[in-house]
C-alpha cells in the first residue's frame, strides 16, 4: 500500500517537474517564477524516496499518520508558492501603475508639443532615409508651411 502510494507520488511529481520544465523551455513560464515549483518538487521527491524523514517528523510533531504529515507539507508548500506570487503581483501592480501614469504624461507632453508646432504652422514630417548612428531627432523634419491666413487677407484686399 505504502509502496504503491510512493510510486504514484514519485511519478506524478516527476511528470509535474518535467511539464513545468518544458513550459520554461518554451518560454511560457519565466524560470525565475518556476524556481519555487522546482524547489517544492525536489522536496516532495526527497520525502517520497525517504519516507523515514516523514515518519520522524510526524513522530516529532505528534501526528499519528505520516500521510497527514504529507498533507501538512503540501499545504505549507502551496501557501509558500502563493506568498511568492503575492509579492510578484504587488511588484507588477506598482510597475504597471507607474507605466500607465508615465504614458499618460508622455502623451500629454506630446500633444502639448504638437499643439505648439501647429500654432506655428509647422508640420512634423518623417524622413524615410536615416542612418542608424543618428539620434531620433534626425528621423523627423520640421516643415514650415505657408500661412493660409495671409493668403485670405490678400484676397480680401
Amino acid at each position: 500500500m505504502m509502496f504503491r502510494l510512493q510510486l504514484i507520488i514519485a511519478v506524478a511529481t516527476l511528470i509535474a517537474f518535467l511539464y513545468v520544465g518544458s513550459k520554461v523551455k518554451k518560454r511560457v513560464i519565466e524560470l525565475k517564477y518556476a524556481l519555487v515549483w522546482f524547489f517544492v518538487a525536489i522536496l516532495f521527491l526527497v520525502i517520497d524516496i525517504f519516507p523515514g524523514t516523514l515518519e520522524y517528523l510526524s513522530d516529532l510533531m505528534g501526528i499519528e499518520l505520516p500521510i497527514n504529515m504529507l498533507m501538512l507539507f503540501g499545504f505549507g508548500f502551496i501557501l509558500l508558492i502563493l506568498y511568492t506570487f503575492t509579492i510578484v503581483i504587488t511588484n507588477q501592480d506598482r510597475r504597471i501603475k507607474r507605466l500607465i501614469q508615465e504614458t499618460a504624461l508622455l502623451n500629454y507632453r506630446l500633444e502639448e508639443i504638437e499643439g505648439a508646432l501647429k500654432k506655428e504652422n509647422i508640420k512634423v514630417k518623417k524622413i524615410k532615409t536615416r542612418t542608424a548612428d543618428e539620434g531620433p531627432e534626425h528621423k523627423v523634419k520640421l516643415v514650415k508651411e505657408k500661412k493660409e491666413v495671409s493668403e485670405t487677407l490678400e484676397e480680401e484686399e
Binding site: 504597471i96 501603475k97 500607465i100 501614469q101 504614458t103 499618460a104 504624461l105 502623451n107 500629454y108
Partner: peptide, 12 residues
C-alpha cells in the same frame, strides 16, 4: 486634460 491610457483607479 491628461488621459490615462487604461483605467487604473482613483488613487493612480
Amino acid at each position: 486634460v491628461v488621459n490615462m491610457p487604461l483605467n487604473s483607479g482613483i488613487g493612480a
